[in-house]
Design a protein around this nucleic acid. Structure first.
Length: 682
RNA sequence: GGCGAGGUAGCUCAGUCGGUUAGAGCGUCGGAUUCAUAACCCGGAGGUCCCGAGUUCAAUUCUCGGUCUCGCUACCA
């Protein structure tokens, strides 16, 4: 199975430049990718490890508008912050590029042009809202209007924030442009589509048959599911003024869709790297003997396994990914990580709060990596892994060895006097570790690889404890020489093998042992440290993390939680209305007569309501909270003069009033006393 | 609703191409020890392998059904 490759191109998902990096990004993508890159480099492989900021797309333009600045200001801010925090954290990118760079614009538009020239796209024209004053088509988010469901007047074209409904701009009543406030007009617009359906057969062959056994189950399963469902053409352009201009004459105001331009960013990054280093980028993308690997999170599987490969295939001259080891998600203290809710451990804050402890976080995120299922990061676990594993096992072994060597031999490495049975078997065992760790890493099993590394430290601890040099020294100094030599060789092996996982620690340890730039072939060598060489003063590799420190972090999160709750309950009241406006609504008390689940939906119940005036059908999205049988007879409030609307083919005549709490849980608003149906609510 | 992934010791996870007492780390309890950052080393306790049915001489492992978690997707007050 392990074919021989001449070089490796490793890509890591381009972080979106509208927020900082958090531990979820690190655990899912950057830490495993970095371990892999460092491992390959140590083996002497030719590696190009690519990263960069994804700087296009609508969310960035929205954030810019909200802050009253240009999109460039936003992406500059986050690009710099992200880049610096990666550097400080020791992610060893060969290049960290950005998609707003000229080289990327050129690469992406050339890519587009090539496919265009070879008729690899299909053209379609459809109707979209256009702001005549601003002379541009409007992204869904830039259109506001009245929600057809709840009547909220400031619903967006893609979603109503009042009732949570996803919308299409065409559904909005009284649409307005968020740019000018004008009424937008519908206008025809032309776009280009990549006909993914034409690649189905090829994908089937390449992935379903070709990668059945070497791709992770979560990746393979999802890809197969998509292909089995059948693929549809996907628009590669859109009307927007932030992004890579579509390089055609009749395409003013159009840019490449961000999903199309972003992965090309990997290629542009290689070119940027090429310009800086003078090396040719082409072999890294076009030579058959290059192994291309995409490190991503599970949200990106479809793009990297289906869409981007289809693009590359269409273009024709690029290699395809050999593997896409996507990880699942990391939770934080039992709750989903969320940028908007500020529920995250931010990398730049961590680096600030725990200076010099990059490896601790790298260790914890690797040991607890969401490789096969979602995992949870807790500060308590972070502390325990540092104190009970890194420090107690790894750090302690190194420290014992070095302290003993100082104490008994003034820091001069003793020679083996006689290779006794214990020394021999221990050293034999040491030799097995590079192979074990490599085998795990080759299969992208980073957790397993790391635990093997720790087993080497365990072996060292056991050897020391069993041999009791502190006792033997009283009677047999020669034997202690052998014991400490063996222990030092183990420490040296740790200094080599830990490099991919704990680069800062490895460097520190190498210095203490007087080693220089070891390579992977040094691993397993049990004569790495020469007798007679002088060791540098030992210092502690890891510090104990005290309760106070993690409690402070937990407190910060609790504060965040409180702020979030406050933010919801103190959500600003809607725009003021007059009494007359309110009186337009006709709300009545009513009773549920019948309730049935609407088939093939998760949330919808079809209700029959006695409104006092009449009996009518209402479709209501409450199925997640109420079982149909149990709500028959329930008194409710109902908005009876809401325009009817068809949902799932059923006409809904009115709306049931529900109260919704911070978690989205719904409950009926119902009269506390038995009033007759049809009583007015005012 | 459709699809995918997952549900194994207190916690985080391995594993079983079906087969004697289901594994590891951490935690916990006990012992030993003092070179070491109350760390190391040895040992013990701890599991209806989500639930139910089926196939089988035998199922945690295969099949079917159910359930819970996460994701994608549809639908949506």
């Amino acid at each position: 199975m392990p074919e021989k490759f001449k070089r490796y191109t490793l890509t890591s998902a381009l972080p979106y430049a509208n927020g900082p990096i958090h531990i979820g990004h690190l655990a899912g993508v950057y830490v495993p990718a970095d371990i892999y890159a460092r491992y390959l480099r140590m083996k002497g492989e030719d590696v190009l490890f690519i990263g960069g900021s994804d700087e296009h797309g609508v969310p960035i333009t929205i954030k810019a508008r909200a802050e009253g600045v240009s999109p460039q200001v936003i992406v500059d801010r986050y690009h710099e912050q992200i880049k610096k925090s990666f550097e400080d954290f020791g992610i060893s990118f060969d290049v960290y590029a950005r998609t707003s760079a000229p080289v990327h614009h050129k690469t992406a538009s050339d890519f587009f042009l090539k496919l265009y020239g070879e008729n690899k796209f299909i053209e379609k024209t459809n109707q979209q809202y256009y702001d005549e004053k601003e002379h541009q088509f409007l992204a869904d988010r830039y259109i506001t209007g009245t929600c057809p469901h709840c009547g909220y007047e400031k619903a967006y074209g893609d979603q109503c924030e009042n009732c949570g409904t996803s919308l299409s701009p065409l559904e909005l009543i009284n649409p307005k442009s968020a740019l000018s406030g004008n009424v937008p007009v519908l206008k025809e617009t032309k776009h280009w589509y990549l006909p993914l359906d034409q690649y189905e057969e090829w994908l089937e062959e390449w992935i379903i048959k070709g990668h059945k056994n070497d791709w992770k189950a979560n990746v393979y399963g999802q890809v197969k599911s998509w292909i089995d469902h059948g693929l549809k053409p996907r628009a590669v352009t859109r009307d927007l003024n932030w992004g890579v201009q579509v390089p055609l004459k009749d395409a003013e105001g159009k840019v490449l869709y961000v999903w199309f331009d972003a992965p090309i960013g990997y290629i542009s990054a290689a070119k940027e790297w090429s310009e800086k280093t003078g090396k040719d980028w082409k072999p890294y993308w076009k030579d058959e003997e290059t192994k291309l690997i995409h490190f991503i999170g599970k949200d990106n599987i479809v793009f990297h396994c289906i869409i981007f490969p289809a693009m590359l295939k269409a273009e024709g001259s690029f290699v395809l990914p050999d593997n896409v080891p996507a990880n699942e998600f990391l939770n934080l203290e039992n709750d989903k990580i969320s940028t908007s809710r500020n529920w995250a451990v931010w990398l730049h804050e961590y680096l600030n709060d725990f200076p010099g402890k990059q490896d601790v976080l790298r260790y914890v995120l690797t040991a607890n990596a969401p490789e096969t299922k979602d995992n949870d990061f807790t500060w308590k676990d972070f502390q325990a892994r540092n104190n009970n594993e890194l420090l107690a096992i790894f750090g302690n072994f190194v420290n014992r060895t070095l302290v003993l060597t100082q104490k008994y031999f003034d820091g001069v490495v003793p020679a083996v006097t006689e290779l006794d049975k214990e020394a021999k078997t221990t050293l034999e065992e040491v030799k097995l570790f590079p192979g074990k760790i490599a085998q795990s890493l080759d299969r992208y099993r980073f957790r397993e690889a790391l635990s093997e590394l720790m087993n080497l430290a365990r072996l060292g601890n056991k050897y020391l404890t069993d041999m009791e040099p502190w006792r033997v020294i009283k009677t047999d100094e020669d034997k202690v020489k052998t014991i400490l030599n063996v222990s030092l060789q183990i420490a040296a092996n740790l200094a080599v093998l830990s490099e991919p996982f704990l680069p800062f620690t490895a460097t520190k340890l190498q210095k203490m042992l007087g080693m220089e730039q070891p390579t992977w072939t040094d691993a397993g060598n049990t004569e790495l440290i020469k007798p007679g060489s002088i060791l540098n003063k030992p210092e502690l590799l890891f510090d104990r993390i005290e309760d106070k420190e993690v409690e402070a972090q937990v407190q910060r999160l609790l504060d965040t939680k409180k702020e979030n709750e406050l933010a919801i309950s103190s959500k600003l009241a809607k725009e003021e209305i007059t009494f007359d406006e309110f009186m337009k609504t006709d709300i009545r008390t009513g009773t549920i007569l019948e309730a049935k689940k609407v088939p093939k939906t998760k949330k919808l119940l079809k209700l029959k309501i006695d409104t006092g005036i009449d009996q009518r059908t209402v479709v209501s999205g409450i199925a997640e909270y109420y079982e149909p049988e149990k709500i028959i007879g329930q008194k409710v409030c109902i908005l009876v003069n809401l325009a009817p609307r068809k949902l799932r083919g059923i006409e809904s005549q009115g709306m049931i009033l529900m109260a919704e709490d911070a978690d989205g849980k719904l409950c009926f608003v119902s009269p506390t006393e038995d009033v007759s149906d049809g009583s007015e609510v005012k």
